[in-house]
Amino acid sequence: SLNIVTVTLNMERHHFLGISIVGQSNDRGDGGIYIGSIMKGGAVAADGRIEPGDMLLQVNDVNFENMSNDDAVRVLREIVSQTGPISLTVAKC
């Protein structure tokens, strides 16, 4: 069973999320979106629970499971540009 973790980040303390995301597209185009790298000083690094290779399932109320990489990057950028905490739900691989 997948270990699902939801992390809520206070964006007032850390001014950027600090992750890159990578799409693992397979033949069907539904390989999922994964955490690529984590930048020091960002909210994700400070929290420490999300790691490279984790699968990104949801951000706030947006489901990322069947999203293309381009869409995921765009949607994540829109969410980060808003104010307030950000909740990331990942599956630990």
Rank of each mutant, 00 (worst) to 15 (best):
S1Y: 13
S1Q: 05
S1N: 14
S1M: 08
S1A: 04
S1T: 06
S1G: 03
S1W: 02
L2N: 15
L2T: 12
L2E: 10
L2K: 13
L2W: 09
L2D: 09
N3H: 02
I4K: 13
I4Y: 05
I4T: 07
I4A: 03
V5D: 08
V5E: 08
V5I: 14
T6Y: 06
T6N: 12
T6R: 11
T6Q: 13
T6V: 10
T8Q: 06
T8A: 07
L9C: 12
L9Y: 12
L9H: 03
L9W: 02
L9M: 10
L9S: 01
M11L: 09
M11N: 08
M11A: 06
M11Y: 10
M11F: 07
E12V: 09
E12G: 08
E12Y: 11
E12L: 08
E12S: 10
R13G: 13
R13Y: 12
R13E: 12
R13M: 07
R13A: 09
R13S: 10
H14Y: 12
H15P: 03
L17D: 02
L17G: 01
L17F: 02
L17I: 13
L17H: 01
L17N: 02
L17S: 00
G18E: 01
G18Q: 02
G18N: 01
S20F: 01
V22N: 15
V22S: 14
V22D: 15
V22G: 13
V22I: 13
V22M: 14
G23A: 06
G23D: 14
G23M: 03
G23R: 11
G23H: 10
S25F: 14
N26Y: 15
N26T: 15
D27G: 15
G29W: 07
G29M: 13
G29P: 13
G29I: 12
G29A: 10
G29S: 14
G29Q: 11
G29L: 13
D30P: 08
D30A: 13
D30E: 14
D30S: 07
D30W: 06
D30Y: 04
G31R: 15
G31P: 15
G31W: 14
G31S: 10
G32M: 04
G32W: 07
G32R: 09
G32V: 04
G32Q: 12
G32F: 05
G32T: 05
Y34H: 03
G36V: 04
S37P: 03
M39I: 13
M39T: 04
G48C: 04
G53V: 04
D54W: 02
D54Q: 02
D54V: 00
M55P: 01
M55G: 05
M55N: 13
M55F: 10
L56G: 02
L56A: 01
L56I: 04
L56S: 01
L56T: 01
L56M: 07
L57G: 00
L57I: 12
L57F: 05
L57T: 09
L57S: 03
L57N: 01
Q58S: 13
Q58E: 13
Q58L: 12
Q58C: 13
V59Y: 02
V59M: 13
V59S: 01
N60D: 07
N60T: 01
N60P: 00
N60W: 00
N60M: 01
N60R: 03
D61P: 01
D61F: 02
D61W: 01
D61M: 10
D61R: 07
D61C: 06
D61L: 03
D61K: 10
V62L: 09
V62D: 13
V62I: 09
N63F: 08
N63Y: 11
N63K: 06
F64V: 05
F64Y: 08
F64N: 00
F64Q: 00
F64P: 02
E65W: 01
E65F: 04
E65L: 02
E65A: 08
N66M: 09
N66F: 08
N66K: 12
M67K: 11
M67L: 14
M67C: 05
M67E: 04
M67A: 11
M67Q: 05
S68G: 08
S68D: 14
S68A: 11
S68Y: 11
S68I: 11
S68C: 08
S68F: 12
N69A: 12
N69V: 07
N69Y: 13
N69M: 10
N69T: 13
D70W: 05
D70Q: 06
D70K: 05
D70C: 08
D70V: 05
D71Y: 07
D71A: 07
D71S: 06
D71E: 13
D71N: 12
D71H: 07
D71Q: 09
D71L: 06
D71W: 06
A72L: 01
A72Q: 04
A72E: 01
A72I: 03
A72C: 03
A72F: 00
A72M: 02
V73E: 15
V73A: 14
R74T: 08
R74C: 07
R74I: 12
R74V: 12
R74Q: 14
V75W: 04
V75C: 09
L76P: 02
L76E: 02
L76W: 12
L76V: 06
R77D: 15
R77V: 01
R77N: 11
R77A: 08
R77Y: 03
E78W: 02
E78H: 04
I79H: 04
I79S: 10
I79G: 14
I79T: 06
I79P: 07
I79Y: 05
I79F: 07
I79W: 02
I79A: 05
I79E: 01
V80T: 09
V80Q: 14
V80N: 14
V80Y: 08
V80R: 14
S81T: 11
S81N: 06
S81D: 09
S81E: 15
S81Q: 13
Q82T: 13
Q82Y: 14
Q82H: 13
Q82V: 15
T83M: 07
T83G: 03
T83L: 12
T83A: 10
T83E: 08
T83Q: 06
T83N: 10
T83P: 09
T83R: 07
G84H: 06
G84Q: 05
G84D: 15
P85R: 12
P85L: 14
P85F: 07
P85C: 14
P85Q: 11
I86R: 03
I86P: 00
I86S: 01
S87Y: 06
S87M: 11
S87I: 05
S87K: 12
L88M: 14
L88F: 05
L88H: 01
T89N: 04
T89Q: 14
T89V: 10
T89K: 14
V90L: 15
V90K: 02
A91M: 03
A91S: 14
K92R: 04
K92M: 02
K92F: 00
K92Y: 09
K92H: 14
K92P: 03
C93N: 11
C93A: 15
C93R: 14
